[in-house]
Design a protein around this nucleic acid. Structure first.
Lengths: 327, 327
DNA sequence: CTGAAAGCGCTTACAG
DNA sequence: CTGAAAGCGCTTACAG
């Protein structure tokens, strides 16, 4: 490339990285750019990374990209990374367990930092060993993370609980995600807290299920099974997939949603408005979470200390909740 | 690292890359491994890529990862890549248009090959300029691609058409994806062909919409709008999202699915079994598509010529199709 | 304003 | 069996 334009390597580098002003004559700069264009010259990223000692690349770790929520979060993170010309490599850590392989090996790239979302507690530990700048999303604040970006899960769970309590519900069941992570522990904690504050309100059952349709069906069937005189009238689900499963279960048991049983979800996936009745759920802006998280990681990489950010999570009232049956 | 273990750089490289047999004494090899473990030594991937002239990294290009189908395909591709210790960088090319930015820049990594799925025709052109080994998924065979992996879209569309024709449907509408790509052109072509072969069968309308719920609703409302005496009794949709939207539209118009109107989808997303009635749709094994595609790309990278693979796509009959109303 | 040179951390012939 | 050396393609002081 340098030979072709009749200038030195240094000049090429200066011009192409736009650091030439005052160091290379405008005429030469233009000549270099023209030659680069003509040759379709593409600087070798590996050499650049080697020389610079960093890759302008970050690792994004998500439990499962086939979950729409994480796909959104990833999209937000990538959008922000691109603005800064930072590459993103993805590592899929299976939900609820530590990374099966060393993510830094499988990434196959020099990684400057890590953005990890909704990790289970033990997965987090494995990740911390990397020694790289780490930003955690939707996770317990503190720990080794240089910064954390969370939703206000507490407030969201309070809104869900109060919405159902205000409608008159007193008998609840929690269809819980079978994942040991901060976000789900928080939901269980606040739900229990809110119900405890209202005389007569009771949590009749907590049924755990993996986050998927069949899991939700099974767990809800269990929760709605006839028991000593009282069946829950409200099913609080940790995820829209579980909620949709719960609706299916209710229908199979001959119960109508929302006339006989109210169901709430979490996430506000496309799914939530695909089913009928549409799901009352908590809107979690995943794209925004990813974008904020990436912004925080980029800040950490620049040496700043962005700390903890909390994003609002809003209750969206739709058709799957109503007053409990008169009985 | 070399200094620490008291051996040369070369020895370290040989041992860690497992090329030491017959060249380094077993005792030394073990010493090197021990030192590496103790120091938490991680070979610099950038240097390795520079020296080797390749990154052991491939670029996967998908229109949108927030679409479950592409997320599955990506998962399959990554699974296979990991087996070979090949890294995957992702490029999100907006549906229906060429990449907004140079994917090779935004990847920020040395890329050895490209795996691209369901690209619109013009996006493909941009991609071809890369000059890298290219494997296309779910796309027109031929072109610059070294290999292609496709679903048998023709057979699948024939199955859908015959299923509806066999049920007695004669008045059809096509809710088509508003994307100019091989897979969708193929569906339109075969549907027209099948209907032409049956006397009395007619395609009353083709309504286009972006692949999303609201688009499906709008397009189906249009398709079902009262027109000169005849309304379609079967809606063939290019995607499950469109099909779910079509079901919603039908219900809003006071029509029952499947009693008054039958609806079919494509993809077999989670969505398909979330709604009620569950969707009759074409199961497209996306994970398998991604896995086969990556296998083909890896073969191309080894200098083989894998050619074209066609994966079966099967019709799944569920609740959204039935005999047309007696009228 | 411009070029020659050093060096980032690896891998791979090559010489001992 | 082992080590010294070259070189991958960049960027950045440094000397002219």
């Amino acid at each position: 490339m340098a030979g072709r334009a009749g200038v030195s390597q240094a000049t090429v580098s200066l011009v192409l990285r736009d650091r030439w002003r005052g160091r290379v004559s405008p005429a030469r700069a233009e000549a270099v750019r023209a030659a680069a264009r003509e040759l379709g010259y593409r600087p070798n990223e590996a050499a650049r990374a080697l020389r610079l000692g960093r890759g302008r690349t970050v690792l994004v770790v998500v439990p499962a990209l086939t979950n729409e929520f994480f796909a959104r979060m990833h999209a937000g993170a990538v959008r922000v990374a691109e603005e800064d010309d930072v590459g993103v490599v993805l590592y899929n850590s299976p939900l609820g367990s530590g990374p099966a392989r060393d993510p830094f090996v499988s990434a196959g790239a020099a990684v400057d930092g890590v953005l990890a979302s909704s990790m289970a507690a033990d997965a987090l530990t494995t990740l911390s060993d990397g020694g790289l700048p780490l930003v955690m999303l939707d996770s317990a604040p503190g720990g080794r993370a240089a910064a954390t970006v969370n939703f206000d899960i507490g407030a969201a769970t309070r809104h869900v609980s109060r919405h159902l309590l205000d409608l008159g519900h007193r008998r609840f069941a929690h269809i819980a995600a079978d994942v040991d992570s901060w976000t789900f522990r928080e939901r269980a904690r606040v739900l229990a807290e809110e119900l405890a504050a209202v005389p007569g309100a009771r949590l009749l059952a907590t049924c755990r299920a993996p986050i998927a349709l069949p899991g939700g069906v099974l767990a809800a069937e269990q929760a709605l099974a006839p028991r000593a005189g009282s069946r829950p009238t409200a099913l609080v689900c940790d995820d829209d997939l579980l909620a949709v499963g719960a609706c299916k279960a209710a229908r199979r048991l001959g119960l109508r949603v929302p006339e006989d049983v109210s169901v709430t979800g979490f996430d506000d996936l496309t799914l939530a408005v695909a089913v009928e009745p549409e799901l009352t759920t908590v809107h979690l802006p995943g794209e925004e979470l990813g974008a904020r998280g990436m912004r925080a990681l980029l800040a950490v990489l620049r040496g700043e200390r962005p700390g903890t950010t909390v994003l609002p999570a809003t209750l969206v009232r739709r058709g799957s909740t109503a007053r409990p049956p008169a009985a």
